[in-house]
Write a protein that binds this DNA or RNA. Structure first.
Length: 579
RNA sequence: GCGGUUGUAGUCUAGUCUGGUUAGGACUUGGGCCUUCCAAGCCUACGACCCGGGUUCAAAUCCCGGCAGCCGCACCA
């Protein structure tokens, strides 16, 4: 049993003060669903806008929004309909449920991954495999698909699913996106939104939800050019890397610079390493301390078969241990190729060479005078077919004194050497079509929010409070009258109004004593408090109190608005006010 | 999904075994008094037996089912 004091305390505050609570409470609730309350929704918005600042503004990726319900074909192509499932079997005697493939592999020592359920059922009966627990009989194998199924249209003829990830919504309109980016790699597209997975038994609070928010970026790159033009700007960032080798050898993670990681081949490319760094900077900016972050490389066995390299960004928690909050993968051309195949669309990019390549090519030319009479109405088709042919093959046939057969749609025609001529031709090749590789940083926003709350929780002798980073704190400033008389409350209300006019989320609190108000304010992580006291009435000054160290400075009211704006946006540090 | 266990105001809890008055307390919250800087004090108010069914004259209490939480197992492309 872990010590989960922080988890318990943070979740209590979250529930009590309106960050998070489980959904549908008055109807007994439903596992795997959470509401974001007033402060939680604001915090979430602030974190998402910070994310946009990094990825949309900073990296120049554009954001799109696609439907959360997807037709079956699309998810068939992505592999989710067939493979986002587990083959399950149940013991008829003790009612335990097992992964069918695991049960089989334990007994027959053979890889059965990817086999049909029927085949798995057969293997079980042929090998007389029994329940691993009690030896009883196992039922036929069925697939448990983690997607929520629904119907599209009134008659329910078309099956739809709630999307299990936002990524597919970016791959599917790839041609449109490529055109938007005027045909050039690399480019990045992001999507922020809900995704759905019908987890068998979600029991870890906000860590495993059935409906959750993802922020994903899909970065399309040239497969042969995975350098990053801005790599120099992150090259010296230190990353706490736990490689797959280190895991296998039971070693600890190591602090490594991004530059070093790429040079030693620890991380497979600059683009991937660059994304690890950006993710690291983002988390640091949310106030998650570097000591509780590590980058864990997927083991070869856990990585999807199409991925080249994949790193999870993990955060240490007292209740769950290390949890994955971000996955950053090089998914290669898997997704685009798969959609290309299922949709019969060309999802490739024409990449122009720096210099066009000259090649000498043998071409075969028809002798038109002979072709017309010989093939009559088929002549144009034969000529077209001839153009698409590899001329050297035709020549080879003739060298062997044979004729060459051309397959038309409905017949085969014979070409002999006297109806064509050969020609060496110089051709310019300007480039080639390639299917881009995809670098995918995928963020679990709900888990990030949990991490932010957990690691902003601070307690000392006197206080328990959230040390939320000031740019993401839901409420920017609280305004208090020192006591409730002599018009102090009135002045405090005026200041609160003016702060709101400045675009700062500000609240007023006049109940209880000043100490209680500070305590309430700290508990929800309000970075600054403005207090109106009797000196305010004499000289129009107020105090600003810094949540983190309880210190106060006195400044004129007319300056308070700009000062707070500068403090909240990080343009000014509180310490500089104290001089 | 299986087994165990728990479910009383926003929170913690008494009462449940042994059915019986108006479900008691503390903290929190709202209002008021007081209060010249970090949850003080006083007055006052709001607020609960997880949901559904059964047994009974009578159910927070006993029984059954559901839902949710916790623990263990399983699961987590």
């Amino acid at each position: 049993m872990r010590n989960c004091m922080s988890d318990t305390k943070v979740m209590n505050i979250a529930k009590k003060r309106g960050f998070l609570w489980s959904s549908f409470e008055i109807y007994s609730g439903s596992a795997g669903f959470f509401d974001y309350g007033p402060l939680g929704a604001t915090l979430k918005n602030n974190i998402i806008s910070k994310w946009r600042k990094y990825y949309v503004v900073g990296e120049g990726f554009y954001e799109i929004e696609s439907p959360t319900i997807m037709p079956e074909e699309a998810l068939k192509a992505s592999g989710h309909v067939d493979h986002f499932t587990d083959p399950m079997t149940e013991c008829k005697d003790c009612l335990e449920v097992f992964r069918a493939d695991h049960v089989i592999e334990d007994v027959i020592d053979d890889d059965v991954e990817g086999l049909e359920n029927q085949k798995l059922t057969e293997i079980i009966s042929e090998n007389q495999i029994g329940c691993p627990k009690c030896g009883g009989h196992l039922t036929h194998v069925w697939s448990y698909n983690l997607m929520f199924q629904t119907m599209i249209g009134a008659k329910g003829k078309a099956t739809g699913y709630m999307r299990p990830e936002t990524a597919q919504g970016i791959f599917i309109p790839f041609k449109r996106l490529l055109r938007f980016f005027r045909g050039k790699l690399p480019f990045g597209v992001v999507q922020i939104g809900k995704a759905y997975r019908n987890e068998i038994s979600p029991r870890q609070g906000i860590i495993r939800l059935r409906e959750f928010t993802q922020a994903e970026a899909e970065i399309f790159v040239d497969p042969v050019d995975k350098d990053h033009p801005k790599f120099a700007t992150v090259a010296n960032d230190e990353l706490n890397l736990l490689s797959s080798d280190a895991q296998l050898n039971k070693e600890d993670p190591k602090m490594v610079t991004a530059k070093n990681a790429v040079e030693t081949g620890l991380v497979s490319s600059e683009v991937l390493a660059y994304q690890l760094c950006i993710a690291g900077r983002f988390l640091a900016d949310l106030g998650i301390p570097i000591e509780v972050i590590r980058f864990r490389q997927h083991l070869p066995t856990e990585m999807a078969h199409y991925a080249i390299d994949c790193w999870d960004v993990e955060v240490l928690t007292d209740r769950f241990g290390w949890i994955e909050i971000i996955g950053i993968a090089d998914r290669t051309d898997f997704d685009l190729k798969s959609h290309a195949k299922y949709s019969n669309e060309d999802l490739s990019v024409f990449i122009e060479y720096d210099e066009p390549k000259k090649i000498n090519k043998l071409v075969v030319k028809p002798d038109m005078k002979k072709f017309g009479p010989l093939f009559k109405a088929d002549a144009p088709k034969v000529i077209k077919a001839l153009e698409d042919l590899d001329a050297s093959k035709v020549q080879k046939a003739f060298d062997n004194d044979e004729t060459y057969n051309i397959e038309l749609e409905d017949k085969t025609v014979e070409i002999s050497s006297d109806v064509v001529s050969f020609n060496e031709q110089e051709e310019m090749i300007r480039g080639e079509k390639v299917v881009p590789h995809v670098i995918e940083p995928s963020f679990g926003i709900d888990r990030i929010i949990y991490s932010v709350l957990l690691h902003s929780y601070t307690e000392d002798d006197e206080r328990e409070f959230l040390k939320l980073e000031k740019q993401i704190a839901p409420i920017g400033v609280n305004v208090f009258p020192l006591v409730n008389k002599d018009k102090l409350a009135e002045r405090a209300h005026e200041i609160r109004e003016e702060l709101r006019n400045q675009g700062i989320i500000a609240e007023y609190d006049g109940s209880g004593t000043i100490g209680r108000r500070y305590a309430r304010s700290d508990e929800i992580g309000v970075p600054f408090a403005v207090t109106v006291d009797h000196e305010t009435l004499e000289n129009n000054t107020v105090t600003i109190r810094n949540r983190d160290n309880l210190e106060q400075v006195r400044i004129p009211i007319q300056e308070v608005y700009n000062v707070l704006l500068d403090l909240l946006t990080g343009k000014m540090e509180f310490e500089s006010l104290q001089q």
